[in-house]
């Protein structure tokens, strides 16, 4: 079992000299160019950067969805860049929750079933999985749409289902790629509240986003450009007086 080989000490995620190249010759793209990253347990990390800077690629590599061209990826003390597909799948069901940029819901499953799928795969009992799915959908404001197929949901609703799905197996790390890209302000607040609650359970969160408001829930913000990290900001609490920001003081 992979869970046995996952250590409960040290960083949740770590990369070393991570490189990813697509294509070859003149079509060569250096999507990631030597990324060094360490994410502590329970930490929330935001990754921002212009389109095409390699954010999604980084997330995919962190979750073992693709193999790096070079470098190491460690998840909870286990090196995963060389693992086989089967071992990776086992690892993911145990330790990783994904929110894809393109949602990637299973068209043939209802919203509720999409959400409970990772839980079922992770070995949760059907009853518990169903309960958890209902609870998560409720928290993203979709309790009334549980029985709908994705084709009957709006873009924002699909995105919220995707977020709920990423949390259903109670993963060690949640990797969220633009989890609020299609949401209005209120739905964004719902999703952010849900993601922020991971802090209480000590889960690690990596969010890729274009939205500073989403990044603001992180402990640390990393900016990427052309496949590398260009800036790292620690977002400390209590920066600026709230009443001043709200226009109550002047």
């Amino acid at each position: 079992m992979p869970s046995e080989s996952l250590s409960s000490l040290g960083p949740a995620l770590r990369t070393h000299g991570l490189r990813m190249r697509y294509g070859q010759g003149t079509g060569l793209v250096n999507a990631l160019d030597g990324v060094e990253l360490e994410v502590a347990r329970g930490e929330t990390l935001a990754v921002m950067g212009p389109s095409g800077s390699g954010k999604s690629t980084l997330l995919h590599l962190l979750g073992g969805l693709e193999r790096p061209s070079e470098g190491e990826v460690w998840l909870a003390g286990r090196r995963i860049d060389g693992l086989g597909e089967k071992a990776l799948a086992r690892l993911r069901r145990q330790a990783v929750g994904f929110v894809f940029q393109a949602f990637h819901l299973m068209d043939e499953l209802t919203a509720e079933e999409n959400v409970e799928l990772p839980a079922l795969l992770a070995g949760m009992s059907p009853r518990a999985a169903r309960r958890r799915a209902g609870e998560l959908l409720d928290r993203v404001g979709l309790a009334g749409r549980a029985g709908h197929l994705p084709s009957a949901l709006s873009g924002g609703e699909r995105q919220r289902v995707a977020v709920a799905r990423a949390l259903s197996n109670e993963p060690l790390v949640v990797l969220a790629d633009e989890p609020t890209g299609n949401l209005d302000s209120a739905a964004t607040a719902d999703v952010l509240r849900l993601l922020d609650s991971l802090r209480e359970t000590g889960q690690t969160l990596v969010i890729v986003t274009h939205d500073a408001r989403v990044a603001a829930i992180a402990d640390r913000l990393i900016s990427m450009r052309d496949g590398s990290f260009v800036e790292e900001t620690r977002l400390t609490r209590g920066g600026g007086r709230l009443s001043e920001l709200a226009g109550l003081e002047g």
Binding site: R193, R213, A216, L235, G240, L242
Partner: peptide, 13 residues
């Protein structure tokens, strides 16, 4: 501004 945003966002959450 980012720091302000962070504290406002946390307060909001």
């Amino acid at each position: 501004v980012l720091a302000g945003l962070a504290s406002a966002q946390r307060a909001a959450l």
